[in-house]
């Protein structure tokens, strides 16, 4: 019954990483959802044209913010290194640093993709504006 548990551990780590990534990318996705759907209430009062006029610009600016945020934010890496030193009395090895930077790069890539999603939505709204109205 004392078989190799490294596979199970790897699965567990993989699941934890996926969960953490999801936690980090959830806020900008939620923000996009709110940006698109909250101002829809204004449609009742002002109609679709003002909404479609302003929102592509707002969402495009938000896309730039999201991309830059993803590029600059360390996604908790410095806090992790501090905790590692304080609680585990361990200094990260070169391999650890490469792993941390890889995770940061993946998350930055995800934020860029989310930024592109923002831009796509804004372009879509713009296309609706010029083709439908």
């Amino acid at each position: 019954m004392t078989g190799d548990t490294s596979g199970e551990n790897n699965d567990e780590i993989r699941r934890a990483v996926a969960h953490a990534r999801w936690k980090y990318i959830k806020p900008p996705l939620l923000a996009l959802f709110l940006l698109v759907f909250l101002p829809l209430s204004s449609v009742v009062f002002y109609g679709f044209i003002p909404y479609l006029t302003y929102m592509p610009d707002v969402i495009f600016i938000a896309a730039i913010v999201v991309i830059f945020f993803g590029a600059w934010f360390d996604f908790g890496a410095s806090a992790y290194l501090k905790d590692l030193k304080d609680f585990y009395h361990r200094t990260p090895s070169d391999a650890d640093m490469v792993y941390i930077q890889k995770q940061q790069l993946i998350l930055t890539g995800l934020y860029i993709l989310i930024g592109l999603l923002y831009i796509s939505v804004s372009v879509l709204l713009y296309i609706i504006l010029i083709h439908v109205f």
Binding site: N9, A16, F75, G76, A77, Y88, Q103
Partner: peptide, 19 residues
């Protein structure tokens, strides 16, 4: 008890020993 796994960044960067 402290565990890095309880924090999001711990889940992201932690390998086996931080569990």
């Amino acid at each position: 008890y402290f565990s890095l796994r309880t924090k999001t960044y711990g889940q992201l960067y932690g390998k086996e020993e931080t569990t």
